[in-house]
Nucleic acid binder design. Structure first.
Length: 271
DNA sequence: AGTGCGGCCTGTCCGC
DNA sequence: TGCGGACAGGCCGCAC
């Protein structure tokens, strides 16, 4: 269930092991992820140097001089760094080996993730080009979000989870940010004042910032067996706390379903 | 264009 | 104890 903070932490974890190394081989054990891993990926990437390890939204990509290897962790994906002395386990679908016998290994039990190839400019790729701004960058601000929300009838929760509006706000952090902003998740997106949208933007940035800092402590070890995402260690204020006391007012946290997703909120603190 | 839902997939949990 | 079924979730692609 990697959300943006986990993905960014993963990127930072693998970068020093891959940057400026040459790809010596790619082993695909399971092609069938969300989309099939391209059959020609090994031949396209072999012998190429990893120029950069980047992130856009929840996509990590390895920038080569002839294209990019795009990796999405889906729901259950995780990355680790190992060598060929570590035998692959059941859900280890692909190994990208670089010089120095270092392996980037993707594990993804539920196969919601993907590994794709984007020739040349990553921004031309059909999964990347429609994406909204990064939440932690300055272009994601109250004016932008308020304008974008104008006349929109959908709930504010599904609005901020829409990757064409802003990327990186998944189900967990949507509930958390709306709680911090004091906004009821069922409220229509187009019916929220600029001042309250400002609070929401601040809350999204704060929530993600905190989680990245937290991820830096819980997901630090990418070379050992403890490379599992540890987001449950985060201090969640409403997510998964149905029936428990609100940390602010003490009332019971409510759970509802929106767009087939669980939403958690405090009906007293969020209006 | 905006909105909502189906589907992909497996580990975990619950009730019988 | 074992088993079946519900549930969890990111997010594209489609239908309305």
């Amino acid at each position: 269930m990697p959300e943006l903070p986990e993905v960014e932490t993963s990127r930072r974890g693998i970068e020093p092991h891959l940057k400026n190394r040459t790809i010596t081989g790619i082993t695909i054990r399971q092609h069938k992820l969300r989309w099939p891993i391209p059959k020609d990926l090994p031949s396209l990437a072999k012998g190429k140097k990893v120029l950069q390890v980047c992130r856009r939204a929840k996509y990590i990509y390895l920038k080569l001089d002839n294209g990019n290897i795009i990796i999405h962790l889906g729901m259950s994906g995780s990355l680790r760094i190992c060598t060929n002395k570590t035998p692959p386990e059941k859900h280890d679908h692909i190994d990208i080996t670089v010089s120095g016998n270092t392996i980037l290994r993707l594990r993804d039990p539920r196969k919601f993730g993907c590994v794709l190839w984007a020739p040349t400019d990553i921004n031309q790729h059909k999964l990347i080009s429609p994406l909204g701004p990064e939440p932690l960058e300055d272009v994601f601000n109250a004016k932008y979000l308020h304008t974008k929300a104008n006349k929109r009838q959908c709930s504010i929760k599904s609005f901020i989870m829409n990757s064409h509006v802003v990327v990186g706000v998944g189900n967990i952090y949507a509930s958390e940010a709306l709680f911090r902003a004091g906004i009821n998740p069922k409220r229509k997106a187009g019916n929220i004042s600029l001042a309250r949208i400002q609070k929401l933007v601040d809350a999204i940035k704060l929530t993600l910032d905190l989680a990245i800092k937290e991820g830096g402590t819980t997901l630090r070890d990418f070379t050992g067996i403890s490379g599992q995402p540890g987001y449950f260690a985060q201090k969640l204020l409403v997510y998964g706390r149905t029936g428990k006391d609100c940390t602010v007012c003490g009332k019971s946290i409510k759970q509802v379903t929106q767009q087939s997703r669980s939403t958690f909120y405090c009906s007293t603190c969020q209006r």
